[in-house]
Design a protein around this nucleic acid. Sequence first.
DNA 1: GCAAAAGTGTTGTACTTACACCCATGG
DNA 2: CCATGGGTGTAAGTACAACACTTTTGC
Lengths: 230, 230
Amino acid sequence: MNTTYYQNTDQFLISVDCIIFGFQNKELHVLLTRRPVKPLKDEWSLMGGFMEKDESISEAAEKVLFRYTQQKDIYMEQVAAYGDVNRDTGGRVVSVAFYALVKVEKFNTSLAKKFDARWINLRELPQLVFDHNKMVKDALMLLQYKVSTQPIAFHFFNDKFTLPALQDLYEAIYQMPLDKRNFRKKLTTMEILDKLEDKDKVNSKRGAFYFIFNKHKYHKFLAEGKRFSL
Amino acid sequence: MNTTYYQNTDQFLISVDCIIFGFQNKELHVLLTRRPVKPLKDEWSLMGGFMEKDESISEAAEKVLFRYTQQKDIYMEQVAAYGDVNRDTGGRVVSVAFYALVKVEKFNTSLAKKFDARWINLRELPQLVFDHNKMVKDALMLLQYKVSTQPIAFHFFNDKFTLPALQDLYEAIYQMPLDKRNFRKKLTTMEILDKLEDKDKVNSKRGAFYFIFNKHKYHKFLAEGKRFSL
DNA sequence: GCAAAAGTGTTGTACTTACACCCATGG
DNA sequence: CCATGGGTGTAAGTACAACACTTTTGC
């Protein structure tokens, strides 16, 4: 009943691989694991899993994300499908890559042990199995485009964030330094953030004010025909 | 031997659907057909086909493109994978969409008859089967981004083109009018085109000069750190 | 009191936008 | 000779890039 109408056509395993981005110590990190199964057991790999017959591709990706992070409502986006014949040396597998933005603070370290999951600095990415390095590269390029045109970078933070931290995040994603005053000017002229009363006093003695993204202001901003740009 | 290492996992049919764009009469068109198989036989559909076990996804897409156009070396790019459980009412099929830029002039009309293929104006797109309307929408958005940042629009033309035609093309893709002088200024300052001696006298009495894209100049342009933008 | 990070404006430059007339030619 | 589309420059406004000093406070 899976193929009522379509006969005599080949079928394939479909996997999802997740490029799970996290932001920590002013650097972008990716959640990697030592591959638990053969072939290439114990080599560095993205978090992945096979799609099952009763779930959509994105549900399969959400399943993988939940398994490794125990977080729901993670911002996630498809990167592309990878389907070279010999991309997976363990069999013919078509993989769909997704990237996800998670809050490292919320990350459960006991989970990490269970799955041998580790946050690896994007700048020190090791060689990964199969075409996973290409997936990370594609995901990063897509992420760079997306954070520059849509207010999604806030998903890296647990609700509130400081402007210095936000700038560090953008610098990590773009992999280039940004001018502090120009960065803040762009943000303030968009008027889509709310300044809170309290400060983060961990990273400096003076302390940096916290901000939160104001969805309502952002919708008004869009309604005026303006477009997010950073 | 298809699944040496991976056991007990579900397998799926994988199809490719091609959004074949063509440019004609100052309008963007999409090559559509009346679906030849059940279910939804005779409904409007993108050109598609199933992936076979010995081919990559992109090879499967090239196969589809060649079947319906008899053209090789078509510019083609993946849009995304579509994998909702019930997206195809004929069975569980994951589809990967590709868009392609083809030269309508070269199009073989006897082929068109054979496959009941028709160029449909993008502005008059009918309801298509399954999620094909979404695929077209996604493909167009990707195309808009791509033609604005990379010199790929030239693939719509059989080598040479006039500036009025190129502008009509961009207007069709962006679905908005562009300023003639600003458009030409951008093009000429990039210095990546060669002006030919002959003119197209079909579309006007005066005639418009033909241009061709100069790959060599474009590489120099990139080497100087400049980026294509239109 | 000093080190370390937060916060704040201005100016020149480059890019973008808006805009109107003459030219060449076929019929 | 006129209708049709091809071709050209400038000026104003906007966005972007470059740049240096003062403030706060924990130690």
